[in-house]
Nucleic acid binder design. Structure first.
Lengths: 339, 339
DNA sequence: TTGTACGCGTTATCAT
DNA sequence: ATGATAACGCGTACAA
């Protein structure tokens, strides 16, 4: 019934009555072999249930047809769309995605990356700019093509595809300022080891500073990217520094948490408090029309990253940096501050 | 600066002044080699930035330290928690996750699985019971240890870890029946090629049939698992067969969509319509207390799957089927039908 | 404790 | 168009 050992190419070759080389070519370079023998080899392979041995192939060709990706926790849905796009588009080109994650810690990320390089990935996708120097050293020593997703590199040193978080954040904040808001609060993601969260927060500060407004320290709360944490952060802000009319959230999951608490307390959104932020997972639009967001196109980032990587592996030249459009979505009832 | 070719073990050996075998052992079986030489080899390896060549190792050891997982689209957040748990727990044991996805189509799944097997995965995680027979044949021919996540196998034939969807669905429906509901509608996921969606729907039917109630065909709508689709489904149901007081949703994302439309229309939940369903991504609890759900523990499924796979690879015996607890969450304001 | 030598399954180079 | 054979880089008998 179940044969204990898998057929190898030499089995196929022998059964088909050809040499190893011919069998290999018949399956890999069909045009190099006479139609008749090609078909015979193929039939035998199918009949025997032959499955190529990837490790052997990788050893011989020095390519694994595997791309590695190192993400922060992927149960953070922010990255799910990109992961899906990567896996899908790479698969369409015959590549498979080797996925590793870490808990927003540089050491974990370094280890994960090393594991992927040991697996012989042909390319590597990373998230953001904040990395252990040892990671970059590892990358350059190994010579694996890599790129950084989600952010753009101010130094222009690393290949990357992403959005300009700070600029987007400035635009959001200016929009709120234009509506007349002067009292701001921010629920941000943890900014340590996370340039996206940091840049988004800095953007708020810069926009406010541009109008001579300072963001008070008690009006800023950093927390984990989850709705419950967003809600707790909002409660904390309301407790220790109430009076803000505009709340900028690091992303829509945090906004959802804040919004939930607004509903529970009967706080009118956006009449009493206007909530704005980044829409990382297209949730805000579904939950409420009361938000102003920059939509971060995770799927698009993944698609572009895949396309760029495939192009590089094919020997094409690709631009060092690629910005994907991040649309500012201003919904109708976007809220002025109470008079 | 950047050395173009990576150091191999023979480079390490030569530089350290030992043989290839000793170098290999110094890094892999440290206790088999004298402390002094072991350290010397290690230092040289670190200095040279030596990274083992996975393909060569896999070829020699016949193990890739890689586990494959084939998921429906992972931007469906239902599977994000499991993916994260798998990647994390496997990494802790020195394994890496090779991820492939498909668009809920048997052919795509088969191709993805084949790709993973070709990559030489040491084990394979799949989702659900619905698979192309050719997939099972491929699995048994290849001899790769596999297991099916999310569901339990009625035939007891396949190793699996999951929940009893039908039974959970019956419990939810009975709860609504006990509250006095008699007019039911269902928003289900597509049941083709998806035993989870099918079993959940069947559970509603069975529970109703047990009380002599039939679920009208116009009161059932199958759609994609997304909030916008859930909302559209709800609108459709309201249009073509209004009058239901209980709505069972295939999962919380669909419920969220329906709920959004309730809010827009001013339909009181749960006074006018009680919404219940499955909580695949722990969203319902955050959005509203008006839902009754069975919480599907995706992360736990992933953790158990990882543990079982690791145990099998270590040669341990594991139970053929493993059910993870799926808690019925009855929230306070769970809703009686309007008098 | 260490070294030698072979094998893992494929691709690729050279002949034929 | 096909065949023989040498890599690919590492693990592991087996020998010393």
């Amino acid at each position: 019934m179940t044969r204990r050992t898998n057929p190898k190419l030499s089995d196929v070759a022998r059964t088909a009555g050809v040499s190893l080389a011919t069998a290999s070519r018949a399956l890999a370079d069909p045009e190099l072999v006479k139609a008749a023998t090609r078909e015979r080899v193929r039939e035998v392979a199918a009949m025997l249930g032959y499955v190529p041995h990837g490790a052997a192939r990788a050893l011989a060709t020095r390519r694994s047809r595997t791309i590695g990706a190192v993400f922060p926790p992927v149960d953070n849905p922010i990255f799910a769309a990109a992961t899906q796009a990567l896996a899908h588009d790479l698969a369409a080109a015959g590549y498979t995605l080797l996925l590793a994650t870490h808990e927003y810690d540089p050491a974990g990320e370094l280890g994960a990356t090393r594991a992927l390089i040991e697996r012989g990935v042909d390319g590597l996708e990373l998230v953001g700019m904040d990395h252990d120097p040892a990671l970059f050293e590892l990358l350059s020593r190994s010579g694996v093509p890599y790129e950084l997703m989600w952010s753009l590199d101010p130094s222009g040193h690393h290949p990357c595809v992403g959005i300009a978080h700070r600029f987007a954040s400035i635009r959001i904040t200016q929009h709120l300022l234009d509506l007349g808001h002067r009292e701001f609060a921010v629920i941000a993601g943890f900014t340590a080891h996370n340039d996206r969260a940091r840049e988004r927060l800095v953007g708020v500060r810069e926009a406010l500073a541009g109008r001579g407004i300072e963001l008070r320290a008690e009006r800023v709360f950093e927390t984990k990217f989850s709705a419950p944490h967003g809600r707790r952060a909002f409660i904390e802000l309301l407790g220790r520094a109430p009076g803000f009319t505009a709340l900028v959230c690091g992303n829509d999951v945090l906004a959802l948490g804040a919004l939930t608490e607004c509903v529970r307390r009967g706080i009118a959104v956006p009449q009493a408090i206007s909530i704005a932020g980044f829409d990382d997972i297209d949730m805000a639009a579904e939950v409420t029309p009361a938000l102003t967001t920059v939509r971060v196109p995770g799927a698009e980032i993944g698609r572009v990253a895949a396309a760029r990587m495939l192009a590089r592996l094919a020997g094409d030249e690709v631009p060092r940096q690629e910005e994907v459009p991040a649309e500012l979505v201003i919904r109708q009832s976007t809220g002025r501050p109470p008079a």
